[in-house]
């Protein structure tokens, strides 16, 4: 059975994939449906949802269209989540591979640095970094990646430690291949599957961290974010709870979708590995 067919036999994986696909569609379509500035005032303030069909999800305290904000917020959440996870996985895989393959002093130094990063709570690290450098999309991405690369690094190192004992690595040395080429061309690609299995957890965590930073006002001020929307709605939580609930639900569904789809992918590839 092909991995795709196996994936399609797992209902949770389909649910996750469908929701993620919808989210991507929403993020990509946001400028089409809502070409203007989502932060522009679109109607009366604090209009509840389902009252005016030109503003289906109502408006916030300043009269901004909640649906437009939600669409544009999806762009930020996905972009930051994916970019931060990609950066964390790439950095982690490279550092883990170097540590595991080189061994000795290089391994010691790199792993003590990893320890240092792991002992500081990831969120505090992100908070401190953004506070010092100043909030912008790129900074938020780096801040989140700073706290997330250690997991992939440890997994990559463990995998590399076993792969480097295999005969094909000895074979590469025998033909005179440079150690760096062996590490990154022979060993790293074979160490990637378990590292990639972490990606769903890291993407989900990155999206949540971004929301938390925005909630605390440390997101990019020029962009709509779900975290920022929840923070906005907090002031009127009693009178207009929908302002916090709507982006909150979007956040929950996104993280759930990432988890489910990611688990589905991991499980189908793991099954394939155990079969071969």
């Amino acid at each position: 059975m092909s991995p795709l067919r196996r994936f399609l036999r797992t209902p949770e994986a389909i649910a996750g994939a469908v929701f993620l696909a919808a989210l991507f569609a929403v993020a990509l379509a946001a400028p089409l449906f809502f070409p203007g500035d989502p932060q522009a005032i679109a109607g009366p303030a604090l209009l509840p949802p389902f009252q005016d069909w030109s503003l289906p999800l109502g408006t916030d305290r300043l009269g901004r269209d909640v649906l437009a904000e939600l669409f544009h917020g999806a762009r930020t959440s996905l972009a930051v989540g994916l970019a931060a996870a990609a950066a964390a996985l790439a950095v982690g895989a490279v550092i883990g591979t170097l540590a595991g393959f080189a061994g000795g002093l290089v391994d010691e130094v790199l792993m003590r640095i990893t320890d240092a990063f792991q002992t500081v709570p990831a969120f505090l690290l992100a908070l401190a970094f953004v506070s010092i450098v100043g909030p912008s999309l790129g900074v938020v991405v780096v801040a989140i990646a700073l706290g997330a690369w250690t997991g992939p690094a440890r997994v990559a190192r463990a995998e590399v430690l076993s792969i480097r004992e295999r005969d094909f690595v000895a074979g590469a040395r025998v033909i005179g291949m440079h150690p760096l080429e062996i590490a990154f061309r022979e060993v790293l690609p074979n160490a990637l599957p378990p590292v990639m299995a972490l990606s769903s957890v890291i993407v989900a965590a990155a999206i949540l961290t971004e929301a938390a930073l925005s909630f605390l006002g440390l997101g990019d001020p020029n962009r709509v974010t779900w975290g920022g929307m929840i923070a906005e709605g907090r002031a009127v939580l009693r009178t207009a709870p929908f302002l916090s609930i709507i982006p909150g639900v979007a956040l929950v569904l996104t993280v759930l979708g990432v988890y489910l789809a990611g688990e589905g992918v991991v499980e189908t590839t793991a099954m394939r590995r155990s079969l071969s």
Binding site: D167, F168, A170, G171, A172, R173, V174, I175, G176, E186
Partner: peptide, 17 residues
Amino acid sequence: RARLQMVFQDPLAALNP
């Protein structure tokens, strides 16, 4: 190393899969 080469027991293990 160009002058001194090796062939391993299990070619599936000795060549990058």
